[in-house]
Nucleic acid binder design. Structure first.
Lengths: 345, 345
DNA sequence: CTGTTAGCGCATTCAA
DNA sequence: TTGAATGCGCTAACAG
């Protein structure tokens, strides 16, 4: 009779308090509790305080599942990120999560290792199961962008990247302009042979950077040499650097990103070349280490967290207006001059 | 009478199919649909197929809110991460998310900028609102660890890091051993003056690495000099390096992490010193760039994704057994020999 | 093997 | 200003 005779030892002591409990303690109906919770007007301040007190006493947590069930809103958005140690994604996750939280959204994350169509589709499926109200996908590869255009019309989505897509909203950085700034800088220094170590050809960002390099060279009446293929890694920069050092024909190298530049620097030194005296080097991204490399790296800065915030804004807009946007937004990068570039000998 | 006369233009075309719709189309009860969904036995294969077909036709998505409401399980776990471009957290998020997904859990992420107690407590509160079944918190600072011990008894939690805590399960790397390996290596090379550029003193990991350095030195009968304070950044390594170069009394430096080592290398070169000939350098972490620095960096490797997986395992165990564990697990790091160390001149 | 019933905790009508 | 009823979509218990 004492209750709990059959209590199962492994259960948490007290079941979590629900609205009814709060209501009882405050001497009101559970309805009124709901009202104060949702900040409806028409609740006497005095009643409100009693309810608030009761909630505190019972350590009341509103049940989001029940709430979502009836409102048909999960207050959650999905985030698809790419597994990587590249700075970009990490900073963006932070920016996005931050913005989402401020707007009252939870964020559910799915990390994918590759950006193949199938993988991304799986991630989307998983997020749909979760009933997310919208999705932000870091989609730097063509295949990923293609997958995004397959999400149902009624699910808002924003891609982060610069891939071409007919029907999905994308936000990224204007890589082409960034690259041109870098090359123009090198040209103004007097360089005429400017090599490029590119990123993976399946990445639109890589293609844009290469295009910018090509355009700037072309505008100066210089025929672009064949770029070296890379994969964003220091390793690829290192290997490309070894080859470049053997040729000894270039006075400057534009790297697809800073990691590549790190590897390049290493290869150049190993070959006995000096930077910037023998070879000028420019990177892309402006990772936190860039100013403290030897020499401090001239590079193109991207504001990743701005991209993150912006993508959330665009998503929120779609959610609120219930319209699928196909807007395309490109933020401007900024050339940061440091000591890895100088006039050629 | 034709229905939809009052249809609101901005609504998605078709409301999402629910179980009842599937049931009707398949000519069964909604219960049977639920059975096939949850893979209960006792469903005739034939019926099963009809149901599956119907689900496909209607593009049925199960409603997780409704499911969570009745099962009292959100199938979600919370992840508190630290805003940073440090490799560790990024790799661990991946490992954790991966493991969680394989086990059928969603993961909801909260990124915090600082690890102050209040910030972490807020993150926990937010996750509790979401009714997560457990929390993994990347908690590399003392204040964060302290906050973790405040979560209610019935919410499983695992901290990632090496902080001391009476009542929360933690998994991390044995930094002390890692540091000792590094110093022993340096000692065996013949070094007798081995400086240390530390991490932030509020980080237990930093303290452990320093302790390992101190212990190894002590064991060799050497009195440890005063370590230089750093903050994990390349900048701090650079500044410390400038100072060390002025003194010119050390033959080797053990850095708290690889970023610090990057800055140190830069400062050393700037001062006209050669690595490893004049000064040997050892890092910690083994970031992807480490093998491609100049010179390739000898460092202590941590398996971040293993830490991530392990932390999930421990969390899952707590969830399943409904017991709060206080286990403490330390994975072994591994010294990776490269070219930044050699015998002193 | 399958269907019927009940209720999870909440927000949203309606009444009072 | 407050309370009573209704049902969101699903799973679990019980019948058949």
């Amino acid at each position: 009779m004492m209750g709990r005779i059959h209590s199962e030892g492994r259960e948490p002591r007290r079941p979590a308090a629900v609205m009814r409990d709060v209501a009882k303690l405050a001497g009101v109906s559970h309805q009124t509790v709901s009202r104060v919770l949702n900040e409806h007007a028409n609740v006497r301040p005095e009643t409100r305080d009693r309810v608030l007190d009761a909630m505190r006493h019972l350590d009341y947590q509103r049940n989001t599942a029940a709430r979502a069930l009836v409102t048909r809103k999960s207050q959650t958005l999905g985030l698809i990120t790419f597994d990587t140690t590249l700075v970009g994604p990490a900073s963006m996750v932070y920016g996005i999560e931050r913005a989402a939280r401020d707007a009252g959204y939870f964020v559910s994350i799915v990390s994918v290792r590759t950006l193949e169509r199938g993988t991304v589709l799986d991630a989307i499926k998983r997020l749909r199961e979760q009933a997310v109200e919208g999705i932000i996908a870091v989609a730097p590869e063509d295949t990923a962008v293609a997958a995004l255009s397959r999400v149902p019309e009624n699910l808002p989505i924003v891609g982060v990247g610069v891939g071409r897509s007919e029907d999905v909203c994308m936000v990224g950085v204007d890589n082409r302009t960034g690259a041109r700034q870098a090359i123009d800088h090198l040209l103004s220094l007097g360089h005429r042979t400017i090599a490029h170590i590119g990123g993976p050809p399946t990445w639109p960002e890589a293609k844009e950077r290469e295009a910018g390099w090509r355009e700037a060279l072309h505008a100066a009446g210089i025929i672009a040499p064949e770029p070296t293929a890379g994969d964003w890694s220091a390793r690829s920069g290192y290997e490309a650097g070894l080859a470049l050092a053997r040729e000894r024909s270039v006075t400057a190298v534009f790297c697809a990103n800073d990691q590549t530049a790190i590897g390049l620097l290493s290869a150049l030194y190993r070959a006995g070349l000096k930077v910037p005296q023998d070879v000028s080097v420019v990177g892309f991204d402006d990772i936190p280490e860039a100013p403290y490399l030897y020499p401090p790296l001239t590079t193109v800065r991207q504001d990743f967290s701005a991209v993150g915030r912006q993508s959330f804004e665009l998503l929120l807009q779609q959610i609120n207006t219930r319209t699928r946007s196909t807007e395309r937004m490109a933020l401007d990068p900024e050339l940061i001059l440091r000591e890895s570039t100088c006039a050629p000998a």
